[in-house]
Simulated scan of single mutants.
Amino acid sequence: MELMEETFNIVSETERLVIKPLKKADYNNWLHEFESRYPSQHRHDQGKMDMSDCTLEWFHRLVDKHQELALQDIAYVFGVFRKDDGKHLGMVDFSTLARDDFQWGRVGYSIHNQYWRNGYGKESVKEALNIAFKYLNFHRIEAHINIANQPSSKLAESVGMEYECTRKGFIYEFGQWTDNLVYFKNSNECC
């Protein structure tokens, strides 16, 4: 069953960006920017990827899956678009870790490497945190960052997230269980 695309439709703007769920009409823009990525700049940057499996039909299923995850309060995926020309710059997402007495989520973020060093990451994550607290009703948002990923740690700090701890062997990546830094922000510390 195909979902109604407008079900999850939170849109927020900053001075330079529009942050919104992907729509099926975003396919060409989305694909072009993934295909325009530079080769990997460091271990934590996927860089240029093989996009041959990412057909229009595949993308439509992806958009439907994002909608389904949002409806189930599992995850919320937002595209980051430049306001002046509409280019797809990257993604910000939230995963629900616990609700009830916690209202706890995790943030992930990625800006295409051809757009790095323009402040888009900071601007998009800062606004996305506003969305998480104001519209998605989270109280606490965490970022789980590989200890070697200094650019991501710097970004988390730049949006006011606070280092809490290092979780040992926390996430399986690069073929092993890796240590991750945990940064957090609570809703009463935001906006």
Rank of each mutant, 00 (worst) to 15 (best):
G90W: 14
D101T: 15
V107N: 05
K83A: 14
V18Q: 03
I19Q: 03
R106V: 13
H66M: 02
M51S: 02
S52A: 08
E127T: 05
L89I: 10
V107Q: 01
K134G: 10
R106P: 00
R117H: 12
H139G: 02
S40E: 00
V11D: 02
Y135N: 14
H88R: 10
L97Y: 07
V18C: 06
E15V: 11
G79R: 08
D84V: 10
L155S: 14
G86E: 05
K23A: 01
N29L: 13
A98C: 13
E127S: 12
H32E: 07
K65N: 01
D53P: 03
E15A: 09
K24F: 03
F81K: 04
D101P: 00
Y120A: 04
F81W: 02
D64P: 08
K20Q: 08
Q72C: 13
S153C: 03
H60K: 13
V80T: 11
G119Q: 07
T14V: 03
E57T: 15
Q72K: 13
A25F: 00
D84Y: 11
E57G: 10
S40F: 04
H42F: 10
H88N: 08
S152W: 10
K126A: 13
S40M: 12
N146C: 05
K134N: 11
E57P: 06
K48L: 12
F102A: 12
N130T: 10
T55V: 14
V77D: 01
F94R: 05
K24Y: 04
Y109T: 15
M49A: 12
N146Y: 09
I131Y: 09
E33G: 02
D45P: 15
K83Q: 15
R99E: 02
G119K: 11
K48W: 15
K126T: 05
Y120R: 03
E123F: 14
Y38A: 04
G108F: 08
Y135H: 12
D73L: 09
Y27R: 00
E15F: 10
H32K: 14
W104Y: 14
R106L: 08
F59V: 07
S110Q: 12
I19A: 05
K87G: 02
P39E: 02
L129W: 03
N130G: 09
H66V: 10
G119H: 14
F94H: 00
V92G: 05
G119E: 05
W104G: 06
L22E: 09
Q150R: 07
N113D: 00
W116E: 01
N28P: 01
H32A: 13
W58C: 01
K87T: 10
S12A: 15
Y135S: 10
Q67M: 07
E13G: 01
D100H: 13
L62V: 15
Q103N: 11
M49K: 08
V92N: 10
H88D: 15
A25W: 00
D100Y: 14
S110G: 06
Y115A: 07
C54R: 04
D53L: 00
W58P: 09
R106Q: 09
E35A: 02
V80Y: 03
D53G: 09
V107D: 03
D50A: 15
L22I: 08
K83H: 13
P151W: 04
G108M: 03
I19D: 08
G121H: 07
R16Y: 11
C54F: 08
I10W: 10
V18N: 01
E123S: 06
V125W: 06
D85K: 09
L56P: 13
Q114H: 08
T96P: 06
N113L: 01
Q114L: 00
